[in-house]
Amino acid sequence: MTRSEQPEDPNRLHPRPDFPQQDQEPPGRTGPMDPPPDHGEESYRGSGLLTDRKTVITGGDSGIGRAVALAFAREGADVLLTHLAEEEQEARETARLVEEAGRTAVTVPCDIRDEKQCRDLVERAVSDFGRIDVLVNNAAYQMSQPDGISAISTEQFDRVVRTNLYGMFWLSKFALPHIPAGGSIINTTSVQAYKPSPHLLDYAMTKGAIVTFTQGLAQMLASDGIRVNAVAPGPVWTPLIPATLPDTTEFGKQSPLGRPAQPAEMAPAYVFLASANASFITGEIMNATGGTPLP
């Protein structure tokens, strides 16, 4: 066995805190991050698990969304990804990675807090692809409030809930007529759904709701042959972190592996749930928490 073939210690596989303190304006950018996030650019190898699948990924411009888009493309899928208007440059980089894999990339600016934009997004995907085989509801918003519930403004609460829940609800509702049997919906929840951090109270609340939505919708759609699952990441090193948390130096240190995940470490879970290998899996939450035990 060569060195490259040997299993790697997950404790040492990626950078560990302490990290430099870094602050960005929301929604954050990949370029200034130190260390730079790994989306699987040099490591992900596809094996045809999603050949010719037509996929939609919200929040696909950076972080977990970028890693999932890259992995889906290298598995043979075409990708339509959403981004906020101010994230166009980030989205173009994700599109480049998809196209380098020989697949079609479509980038669509979309604020999923708006019902009409969600409806238009689904219509665009159907116009370009003809169908939607996999919908990944990944876009999310958080903002740390160390002073607790009294510091959570109605404006912040509304943004968190509408981004994390309304968008997921509308997109699932509008996409379902275009998802054939064998297709799937994959939602991004969080370790916060089970172990909420007080400073992320509103965000954690929405992630708990995503678990319930996933389990309920899965039962509703099982007879139609459409699977619904979710991934629950632990701490992941994405632009959302320096843009929404006051202290980045020890981010991820609390996980049993002693570090945050890189986005590339989340992507295989989405690939598996989207593939035929998961044909008997629906209504499940795949925990990817770095060892934090969850119910």
Rank of each mutant, 00 (worst) to 15 (best):
M266N: 01
Y270S: 07
L200P: 04
T248Y: 09
E41T: 15
Y166Q: 08
P295N: 08
V68C: 05
K116S: 11
V161C: 07
R12K: 06
Q192L: 13
E25A: 11
Q24E: 13
D61S: 15
H199S: 11
R124Q: 06
E88N: 04
I241V: 15
T206L: 14
D128V: 15
R124A: 05
D120W: 03
A243F: 06
G252A: 12
L50P: 00
M1T: 00
S127A: 15
G130I: 11
M220T: 12
V161E: 01
T282W: 05
L49Q: 07
P235T: 14
V68Q: 03
H39S: 09
F174E: 04
T30V: 15
M33L: 07
A193T: 02
P268L: 05
A274R: 04
L201D: 01
T212E: 05
P146E: 03
P196H: 04
I241A: 03
D18H: 07
G290A: 07
I285F: 03
A209R: 02
A181P: 00
A209V: 08
Y270I: 11
Y203A: 10
D18N: 11
G59W: 01
V126H: 03
R53G: 00
S144P: 07
G182V: 12
T154C: 08
E100N: 08
V160N: 04
A269T: 06
S62R: 13
E75K: 10
H199E: 08
G28C: 07
T282E: 08
P15C: 03
E42F: 07
A243Y: 08
Y270H: 07
E42N: 07
G258M: 01
S197L: 13
T249C: 04
E25S: 10
A175I: 05
P109L: 09
D52T: 11
V106C: 05
P242F: 14
P198Y: 13
D120C: 04
T154S: 12
L240K: 05
N138T: 13
R53L: 14
D114R: 08
A140Y: 10
G65E: 05
A181Q: 00
D9F: 13
G76A: 09
E86I: 15
R159V: 11
A261C: 02
S144H: 09
I281T: 14
N164E: 05
S150D: 11
D52P: 01
S279A: 15
V68R: 06
L97E: 02
K253H: 10
P239C: 10
A71W: 05
N137Y: 04
L240P: 00
R162K: 14
G291K: 04
G63P: 01
G48V: 05
L135Q: 01
A267G: 03
V134A: 14
V228H: 00
P260G: 10
Q142F: 13
C110K: 02
P146F: 09
G40C: 11
Q254M: 10
A175S: 12
G102E: 06
N187Y: 02
R12V: 01
T104L: 12
A276R: 14
N187D: 06
A218K: 02
L294Y: 00
L257S: 00
A222T: 01
A125D: 00
D247I: 13
S255P: 00
P32K: 07
V231H: 03
L217T: 02
K207Y: 06
Y194G: 05
A181C: 01
A276K: 15
D247P: 04
